[in-house]
């Protein structure tokens, strides 16, 4: 089962409770990983676009979409194993477009449900001197907002 279906199940069944105030002052944006979105749509006939946004909405009201998003989302530059091929200059240059897209939203936090995107976003954040940008896994956001 996907990370989204499981988190939605926990939230809807009341097995975890979330506090929306924790990150209320941090403007966030959501990034669609190619493999959960555009590529899943093509390969399996279903892309996960709505589910992560619903989960994020249970954690904070202060978030926005990047532009473009969903099926037209820009790749972070870390896909296809790019973090492991050694072609780092190309990967960082590629990620410049993602940085421009993030800057345009004014987001201080990018929420993402993918290990490759997470690694690449941290890498380009450093390369483009965006020290104050926080890169957060979607499940990290959920864990942070849990009321124990």
């Amino acid at each position: 089962m996907t990370v989204f279906d499981l988190l939605i199940q926990y939230i809807k069944d009341g097995r975890i409770k979330l506090d929306k105030s924790k990150y209320a002052d941090v403007p966030a944006a959501y990034h669609d990983p190619c493999n959960y979105g555009r590529k899943a749509q093509k390969m399996f006939g279903y892309g996960y676009f709505e589910e992560p946004r619903w989960i994020l909405s249970q954690c904070t009201d202060n978030w926005t979409d990047l532009y473009p998003s969903t099926m037209n989302q820009l790749c972070c530059g870390g896909g296809g194993g790019a973090l492991t091929t050694g072609y780092n200059d190309e990967r960082i240059l590629y990620g410049g477009r993602k940085i421009d897209q993030i800057k345009a939203t004014g987001a201080q936090m990018i929420v993402v449900p993918c290990h490759s995107c997470h690694g690449q976003l941290n890498s380009i954040k450093a390369a483009y001197k965006m020290e104050n940008l926080e890169i957060k896994y979607l499940w990290e956001m959920v864990a942070d907002c849990m009321i124990l």
């Binding site: 555009r38 590529k39 790749c75 530059g77 870390g78 896909g79 296809g80 790019a82 590629y94």
Partner: peptide
């Protein structure tokens, strides 16, 4: 290898 197979092209 520098392509990330993101499938924007497709």
């Amino acid at each position: 290898w520098i392509c990330t197979m993101c499938a924007k092209c497709e």
